[in-house]
Amino acid sequence: MASGQKAARVGEEVWKTRVEKVNAELVTLTYGTIVAQLCTDYDYDYAQVNQQLDKMGYNIGMRLIEDFLAKSNIGRCGNFRDTAEMISKVGFKIFLNVTPTVTNWTADNKQFSLLFDENPLADFVELPDDGRAQDELWFSNILCGVLRGALEMVQMSIEARFVSDVLRGNDVTEMRVTLLRYIEDEMPPDDD
């Protein structure tokens, strides 16, 4: 696909020339510590932890999109399929140096999956062996929030959630992204 190739080229170039690199283990350990701390703070209520991670990601995404647009210097995406390619081959590439595979499109082009072959956030991680974490905790849930926050700032309301994770013993790590609607310019309700 042409747009996919273009996105891959842009991602590669930005990654090589315009991104400051940081030690991967620093990122892994920092993120891991945050999740572990959240787990103790919320008394191993994993639903709460997931929600907090998503919220943190949302706040990151809202800022990160500006940085992303500045670095990549790309224009508006023509359709949601282009957006998906951009997310995978430019977004994930320049910030995490991974390119998740975009796949499993629904017929209406509003829903796709991102398959993560590798996940730098989850290196070394083994979920707590308490019989619940494997079923309830989405360790990398911050990524869902980041996508939601970032896309919201460019007029796309989406829902993102993990549906499987190798940490839980699944074969793949898969995130499902659904386009809810394009946000039109809306006047504030009490504006003239």
């Binding site: 572990a36 290196d123 991680v125 083994e126």
Partner: peptide, 19 residues
């Protein structure tokens, strides 16, 4: 070393990981 890097392992606690 890999076990120590697991954020859910607490230093000084028994290693329970089946892996």
């Amino acid at each position: 070393v890999k076990t120590l890097m697991n954020p859910f392992y607490t230093i000084g606690k028994p290693i329970k990981s089946p892996v």
